[in-house]
Simulated scan of single mutants.
Amino acid sequence: MRQARGRAAEDAALAHLRDRGLSLLERNYRCRLGEIDLVMREGDELVFVEVRARGSERHGGAAGSVDAHKQRRLRLAARHYLMTHPRAAAWPARFDVVAISGPDGENEPHWIRAAFDGAS
Rank of each mutant, 00 (worst) to 15 (best):
Q3P: 00
A4N: 12
R7V: 09
R7M: 09
A8W: 06
D11N: 12
A12F: 02
A13W: 03
L14R: 14
H16S: 13
D19N: 14
R20I: 02
L22A: 10
L22C: 08
S23P: 00
E26A: 13
R27C: 04
N28L: 01
R32F: 00
I36W: 02
L38T: 06
L38S: 08
V39I: 10
G43E: 14
G43W: 04
E45D: 13
L46R: 07
V47F: 01
F48I: 08
E50L: 03
E50M: 03
V51M: 10
R54S: 14
H59Y: 12
A62I: 02
A63P: 00
A63C: 02
G64T: 07
G64W: 04
S65F: 01
V66R: 03
D67K: 09
D67A: 08
H69F: 09
H69C: 04
K70T: 12
Q71A: 10
R73Y: 02
L74I: 10
R75H: 07
H80V: 03
H80D: 15
M83I: 01
T84Q: 14
A88S: 14
W91K: 13
P92Y: 07
R94T: 05
F95S: 06
F95R: 06
D96K: 03
V97D: 07
V98R: 06
I100C: 04
S101V: 02
S101L: 02
E106Q: 15
P109Y: 03
P109T: 04
W111A: 11
A114Q: 13
A115T: 03
D117F: 00
A119L: 06
